[in-house]
Nucleic acid binder design. Sequence first.
RNA 1: GCGCCCGUAGCGUAGUUGGAUAACGCGCAACCCUCCGAAGGUUGAGAUCGGGAGUUCGAAUCUCUCCGGGCGCGCCA
Length: 562
Amino acid sequence: MEPLAVDAEHAVLPDDALRSFADAIRESAAGVYPGTDAAVGFEAPRRPEFGEFATNVAFSLVRAARRSPQEIAQTLVADLRSRAPTVAGLFASIEPVAGFINLRLAPAIWQAAVARIVRDGEAFARASHRGTRISLEFGSANPTGPLVVVQGRALSIGDALARTMRLRGYDVFVEWIINDSGAQIETLGRSVDARYRQLSDSTIAFPEDGYPGEYVVEIARALRDTQSERIAAMPERERLEFMAQFARDELVAEQRKSAERFGVRYDLWQSERDLHEKGGIAAGIERLKELGLTYEEDGAIFFRATQFGDDKDRVLVRADGRPTYLCTDVAYHYEKLRRADRVIDILGPDHHGYIGRLHGLAAAFGYPGHLEVLIAQQVTLMRGAEQVSMSKRAGQLVTLDEVLDEVGIDATRFFFALLATDTPLTFDLQLAVEQSNDNPVYYVQYGHARIASVLRKAGDADVKAARGAGLEALVHPAEIALARRLAELPNLAQSVVEHLAPHRLARYARDVASDFHQFYTECRILAEERELRLARLALAIAAQHVLAISLDLLGVTAPDSM
RNA sequence: GCGCCCGUAGCGUAGUUGGAUAACGCGCAACCCUCCGAAGGUUGAGAUCGGGAGUUCGAAUCUCUCCGGGCGCGCCA
């Protein structure tokens, strides 16, 4: 058998070893139990004594082979050892236990994985371009106020997904839809107008359905300071329209600024009004008509939603010719479905009942399963034990910017990404600023800073030497455990994309930090003996890269000191 | 009433396509710095995975049913 290569260029990596094992075991199964179909899958057992990986292949053969799982597992392992000693040599142990086959990789494989990470650096886990187009929409809010906390959660989740998708080679197109064509814009105009007139006459009544927030007053003041002469000359109708447009532009600009401050990048801010004016809305309706999925009743145009599981058909265009909210979504999704292989919407918790309708739309257009909808669940703000009030109706908004002012971008992004998207979140502002071990953000960042500190202490010469050093000295359980964790990143990132589960990134980052801290405690990195010292430095460098990549995917900084 | 989501340790949660004695953090108890950052580490106590039935060699995970909680059911957006 050939000696195992440990250099990063021609190394056998953990995934390669598992693939070889799967192939070999399938051959064994085909030989020993002709006519059977072995399914070889791997999992990471919970208990360390069950090895680093385990396969349940024997269970899949029980019926066809008419043997006990344990007997099958033993037979397969014996056969593999004699027929494929090279493959067996990739493993430190191969044990049939209770029908499972428990595996432990040879240390050289883990050492090779570390060498690969050190070599790839920031590019580790990056996948080559694969040509799959993904449209990702999130955050989209009515342009009638500043961004609030729940939207911050959608931004955090959506941006982490977008970054991870780019890392894994997908063509991601990130979009925000500005809902600027409905009645709420007109309401916004009336709200601003009332505040404007109140500036000179405090007895003027504020509309009952108006937006009560203080920001409306600020917009009115801005108008008075810069546009009062123009406004004075306008007839009421023109004035209301002008104010609505002015406020919309102000608020969209403010929303964009908040998103950018939060570190979120968009490729497109799509105005609904523009979509209407450019005929995009009409195109979507036309398509539905061609497909025979619309009909007219009482002067309105209906979508046959019941054909796709909805309880009733839905109005697209009212009798007076005004399109509904759904109508815009019809058009927009038709457009997105045509240009992307996978269309993803992240919506707020109040859109729960809307999911089925959107799926129905995708099916109607001939793209069943191409549209995925995520609901970013509610955020409850706490300050210690006290709940922070945020009633929209009373105008008590807590804006994203206010939260960022209070606790910073890193903590906010990390906390928002920490739980599964559809799990309601309680965000404690007091905890988020605490620089204590209750705070998971600091725990992870501390890991990164601690490594940086060790590398500084080691000195440039050793750090440089470590990058090309042999890693045979890495055999301690804490070293292997850390190496194993680091090597998971590519598969983990891939699972984040496939399951739309960015919270796994945050949890993974915490696990990496935890494994590093344990390694740090048990193994002195700056050991006397040079070979060991360089090998451990290389492992620390690899851990630093993985932490930096994970944090970057979450939009969180990786400090060298704190 | 119909539809969707959720019930996992005192609290907050994770749990890929079903796998072995159910995991992580906080909190609680007891420990660890003559040495690389103690913002760290180790150990312990703590769970009939809401109840019941079914499918399976095997269920927190799939099916049915009941209980408890949240949300959605406009020619609003």
